[in-house]
């Protein structure tokens, strides 16, 4: 922080010198210099578009390949199809019509929604509450609880899968030491193989990051706002609902986007929690499985990837509107 402030001060200094040279420029030979400077200022836009192109090329390659036959994909590069043609919609038709006995891809997309929507909304709600408490409600042990919770971000999710599956499949039981008596700590709700088990798992795994991200945002909200509300007699719940949530919309939207993407594109957690319950598989597993045991029909994955990515892209376009400048500034004034 302090070094950044110094930098800021240092950057301020050449200000007058710069404007001085601009004045000199008006006198003659430095007109070229000004043109160059203007060009330089426009460079960032070019850099951005260059980056956009570099970032889109890999995806674009697959997109074009998804309209080509399997043997074409293997034999020649996608750029040759501009001259040779031979486009086909067969891959998409195959992907969309696959697995007709088990409800097909449409069923799988519905399953994906049934997992991703609760797995996005519920962690956000829970984490926003906790983040607010960690930031603005003083209670004993708050700091340690917060550090402990957020440290769990470091836990590799894979290790938690098996214990959770055991809990969902048979409940959690504990044999009292030295006796034959078993206490049921978590009853067997037969959750294994259901979408509920999947989104419950996602919720638990998402919380450390959600609390971390939202706490970072909520803790920087101006305290005067809350003071004013408290003087007016508002309790924590009212403050949270009336002030914190509306002001945190960009952070909530940002987290919602990522959480939706991660849960929508998740493969491992869903497969572990669902096991042989194929009728509940989300689209990721269905599409990956289309490739077959030895990757025989791997060419379908190209079309499958775009079918899969369509929904998250829509979500991103929709939620991007919430990243609005000046949301905070305006409310502080009013």
């Amino acid at each position: 922080m302090s070094s950044a402030a110094e930098t800021a001060a240092a950057e301020k200094a050449p200000g007058p010198a710069g404007s001085g040279s601009a004045q000199r420029g008006r006198r003659g030979p430095d007109r070229v210099g000004r043109a160059v400077y203007r060009f330089l200022r426009s460079i960032p836009a070019w850099v951005l578009w260059l980056m956009v192109i570099v970032w889109s090329v890999p995806t674009g390659s697959l997109f074009l390949n998804s309209f080509r036959h399997r043997d074409d994909q293997r034999a020649s590069g996608w750029w040759t199809s501009f001259t040779e043609g031979n486009w086909t919609l067969e891959n998409y038709a195959d992907v969309l019509s696959s697995g007709e006995q088990t409800g097909g891809l449409w069923q799988a997309l519905l399953n994906s929604f049934a997992i991703a929507i609760p797995a996005t909304i519920i962690p956000i709600a829970i984490a926003a509450l906790a983040a607010y408490a960690f930031a603005w409600i003083p209670f004993r042990g708050r700091e340690w609880l917060f550090i402990g919770t957020v440290s769990l971000l470091a836990l590799p999710n894979q290790v938690a899968l098996l214990p959770l599956l055991q809990m969902f499949a048979g409940g959690a039981h504990w044999t009292l030491p030295g006796t034959e008596i078993v206490v049921t700590l978590f009853p067997d709700f037969s959750l294994a193989g259901t979408a509920t088990a999947v989104w419950l798992t996602h919720t638990a795994f998402a919380l450390p990051f959600a609390i971390f991200l939202l706490h970072n945002y909520i803790s920087t909200l101006p305290g005067e706002l809350f003071e004013a509300a408290r003087i007016d007699g508002a309790d924590h719940f009212t403050i949270f609902w009336r002030i914190v949530v509306p002001l945190s919309v960009p952070a909530l939207a940002a987290f919602a986007i990522f959480q939706f993407l991660w849960t929508w594109n998740d493969y491992l957690i869903a497969l572990t929690m669902l096991g042989a319950a194929g009728e509940n598989y989300p689209a990721t597993i269905k599409i990956a499985s289309m490739a077959g045991e030895f990757g025989l029909r791997e060419h379908l994955l190209s079309a499958g990837a775009f079918v899969q990515a369509g929904v998250p892209m829509l979500v991103f376009f929709f939620l991007q509107r919430f990243f609005v400048r000046g949301l905070l500034a305006g409310s502080v004034k009013s």
């Binding site: 980056m51 970032w55 499958g304």
Partner: peptide
């Protein structure tokens, strides 16, 4: 931004 973001929307299989 959408185009730079696009890779995030693609599954690991993709």
């Amino acid at each position: 931004k959408s185009l730079i973001f696009l890779p995030m929307a693609i599954s690991f299989v993709g």
